[in-house]
Every structure is written in structure tokens, then in C-alpha cells.
Design a protein around this nucleic acid. Structure first.
Lengths: 178, 178
DNA sequence: CGGGACATTGACTTACTTCAAAACTCGTGG
DNA sequence: CCACGAGTTTTGAAGTAAGTCAATGTCCCG
């Protein structure tokens, strides 16, 4: 298991012949590697998107500790449960939203998580490229770029390369209530 | 937690204003409800697609038992890990495959799971409607129907309403190696 | 036998992709 | 300090896969 200490990661699954799909972005305080418990190999690759520090925790150790520390055992289950819930929202995004809605939902989620970590909930510095956002959202990088431009034209946010300023969070949220 | 004893279920997440997304199908021997551990409510609804029997397991009980039975604790982690891996393949399907590939991957996965449960790996009786398959795969029911017809025209399978006969599993697998 | 739900197929429309060009950013070296 | 070049982002124009709307067909059950 890998606990992100500082920095920012993406996790990627690779299909048979090289088709890549970003399955998530991970910041400080989050865990990576729950996919490797069942099989004996991790199904995803984790890639740092900036200089980062992780704490490597052999799963056997975690499990041993959890036997005596009940709170840790609970925490592991909560982490995994949270990942499952996250993945289900990702499926909802990918399966039943258009490009603009996907980007909106993604941004709101990112801003919320950043805020939970003590950062501003309005000024977001993206660590990932349009390409990577597109992969995560199941659209092309061009579509991501166009969706950004459209949201900016609608006065909901300001975009300058990777610096995003959310001008109207309520307005963004409203766009998801189709 | 709910352990499926007999029958067949779908799980569904509902977006803000009623947009539905099927997040999975579950057959005998599989567990439902890992999404409810973190929050205090389940995020998905489970719906039986035929007469079914489940074993209801209060999570607190499971947790208590797991403390003394090490093997059970491991099993819980394995179940959850497997769900995470499954969700990631679902994301890969939704994010980087076209309609025909999504249906192909879905069918192969379903056949594999049925076979693992002692059923035929070739003759598949679908328990869900085109609508529900479409929701799971992020396409419309018409697109599902057309994809079925196309795979049949290619001689890879035979379709008669909900009865599917996989004629060329290797050929189907090959279609995924784009 | 008839009605209702589900599935298939066709014709048309559209959101997104693809291909291509121009603009911006940033690090490197002259 | 500026110029160059590579990588990234934005924007436009054209093509296409899938959505939408609608008609027809099929199955099941009362």
C-alpha cells in the first residue's frame, strides 16, 4: 500500500493493447493500492504528477497491525469503501453525463477535496494535463479544452492554462441538476 | 451487507435529478453493500432481476466475527478489492471503448463469471433488459440492440431476445485487442 | 386472442472525435 | 537577455459514432 504524504498522483489502467484510462487522482492523505489485495499484482500504475513523497506500507504489516488496533482495521475498511463510492460516481459521470457535465462534476469534486485538505476551494491549480483529464472523463483533450472555454464564456469560472478560478460554484452545481 | 444466495441483482446509483446508472450485476456467491461502510447510508440501490434469496449480514456482526476469524477478515478485504478492480474495468470500458467493444467485454465477463459458477460459458440467458445493459455500458438500448445484431452478423454469436449463444469466444476476445 | 412490455430496425440529428493550424509556456543555450 | 524549440493548449472545420424519434416485430401472460 502507498500512503500519499505530499504531492499528486494519477492512477492508470492499461487495456490489452495500450489503451490507457486514468482511474483516479490522488493527493496527500489518500491511499493507493487497494486493487492489489485480491490478486497478487496491482492492476493500476500510479504516476506522480509532481515531486511527491509516499509512505510505503507492506500490506502484510498493515494487516498485522490491524488485528490488534481495531481503529486501524475500521479505517482500512472505510478507505476501501470510499474508493468504491468514488468509482461509482466516476461510472455515473462516464455513463450518463455529457462532456460539459463531466468536467463540471470533476472540478467540483477536485475543489471539494482540495478544500478538505486546507487549500482554497476556489482557486485550483491543475496538476494534470488536458489529456489526462480527458482520459479520466472519457473524452478527448480537445473536448476538455472546449468545455473549459464554454464554462468560462458562461461566466462560471476563469481558465488560464492550468490555473482555474471557480467564479460561481453554485452555478456549476446547478448545471448538474439537469 | 447482503450475500446473494440465489438469483440475480443489479445495483444502481441515482444522480441528482433521477439520472440512473447501473453500476453492476451480481449473481449467487457475490456480496453487495460495500459502498455503505464509509458513510452511514448505502449509495446504491440493489434491485432483484429475478426471484432471489439473500443473506442479510449486519456489518457489525461481520466485523466482530472477523476479529476472531482471520480468514474471514482476509476474505472481506479480498471481496472489496475485487469490487474495486471490477469498477476499474468498468471505467476502462466506459472511458475508452466504443459501443461494440463495450458489449463484447461485458458479455465475455458475464460468461466467465457464469462459468465460474458452474454454468455454461457459452449459453448465456440474460437476466436484464437492453435498457439495463445500456445503462451499465453508457449507451442507449438501441445501440445495445444494434451492437448485438452486428456481432451476430459477424458470426461471433447468436441472439434471440435474451438468449445469447457465444459462437466464437476467441473471435470476441480478439475484437478487444484493438 | 389481445394487450402490454420488450426488442429490432430505419431515418435523421447531434455531440463528440479527428485532423490541422495557430498561440501560449517554459526551459535551454547561445 | 533573447531566441529557439518542444510540449501543451486553444480554436476551427469536417467526419462519424451514437443518440433520438418513430414504426414494426416479437414474446409472454391473463
Amino acid at each position: 500500500m502507498y500512503a500519499v504524504w505530499t504531492g499528486f498522483f494519477k492512477t492508470v489502467v492499461t487495456g490489452q493493447q495500450g489503451s490507457e484510462q486514468v482511474t483516479g487522482f490522488h493527493m496527500a492523505g489518500e491511499m493507493i493500492g487497494f486493487d492489489g489485495i485480491d490478486g497478487d499484482r496491482h492492476e493500476v500504475d500510479a504516476v506522480a504528477l509532481e515531486d511527491s513523497q509516499v509512505c510505503v506500507i507492506p500490506f502484510a504489516n498493515l494487516q498485522m497491525l490491524a488485528q490488534t488496533m481495531l481503529s486501524l482495521q475500521k479505517q482500512v475498511l472505510r478507505w476501501m469503501s470510499r474508493e468504491i463510492v468514488n468509482d461509482h460516481s466516476a461510472m455515473l459521470r462516464l455513463g450518463s453525463m455529457n462532456a460539459e457535465e463531466r468536467l463540471t462534476a470533476f472540478l467540483l469534486d477536485l475543489a471539494r477535496r482540495l478544500q478538505a485538505h486546507g487549500f482554497s476551494g476556489y482557486s485550483v491549480l491543475l496538476r494534470m494535463s488536458r489529456q489526462e483529464i480527458g482520459s479520466y472523463l472519457g473524452v478527448t483533450l480537445e473536448t476538455v479544452s472546449r468545455a473549459f472555454s464554454k464554462l468560462q464564456a458562461a461566466g462560471l469560472l476563469f481558465v488560464s492554462q492550468r490555473q482555474i478560478l471557480i467564479a460561481d460554484a453554485a452555478g456549476l452545481r446547478q448545471r448538474l441538476e439537469r
